[in-house]
Design a protein around this nucleic acid. Structure first.
Lengths: 114, 114
DNA sequence: CCGGATCCCTTCTGATACTG
DNA sequence: CAGTATCAGAAGGGATCCGG
């Protein structure tokens, strides 16, 4: 039987990484860690993402307990997504990685284009 | 043109995550952050990994400057992999994520099996 | 506005055999 | 032991149309 998908590894690092595994999850969490946002706001703030992937990733994160879906009663359905208390325990680590990533981008981009 | 692969996102978090993107990279870095290891040692210490993926991921990490390949002169080729100085700047963050992952595993496993 | 359902192509991975 | 080459299957992701 193949190791289908992101099966739980004995390595806790993989367990953590599996949470943010997905083309846009990093960006989504980045946004949501700054402030709660509505679905359409998220979509607009992430150029290039398709509706399909946005929803899919949001559902994954909800399932994993990192974010929660708040349905505001209104004429056209309005939904807000925000970090859960649990998600807030993860956020600082992502923020640290984010800071490292900034340095990494500096380090790799100097090959300057244009 | 599709957003092929892990194209650099404006989001630095994604930039960092792209480094550890790959089925076994988390585990590999986990091992190597504990101690330098030879290729065959790594393979043996990671059940389920294929030679192909091990080499592939190692090469990715070398290319990204996270680990380095040290060739020890010997009869049968002996190679050792270890974190670079740059890789050491990333390690602490991965370790933090790892700690979080441990908690996460505790949180999700209680569904107990067996 | 929010989300589901298809179709399809690309990439990732696993299995295996082979070279130095 | 370290690494390459090829093949095939599985998963991820994009485009698009449909419905509440």
């Amino acid at each position: 039987m193949p190791v289908s998908k992101k099966e739980i590894s004995p390595c806790p690092l993989d367990a953590a990484l599996s949470i943010v595994d997905g083309r846009w999850k990093g960006t989504i969490l980045w946004r949501l860690s700054q402030q709660p946002m509505r679905t359409s706001e998220l979509r607009r703030s992430i150029p290039g993402i398709t509706e399909r992937m946005l929803i899919r990733h949001l559902q994954d994160l909800v399932r994993d307990g990192i974010i929660e879906r708040i349905e505001e009663l209104a004429t056209p359905t309005r939904v807000r997504y925000q970090l859960t208390a649990y998600g807030l325990t993860l956020a600082p680590h992502l923020e640290a990685l984010c800071a490292w990533g900034r340095i990494h981008l500096e380090r790799t981009k100097p090959v300057n284009q244009k």
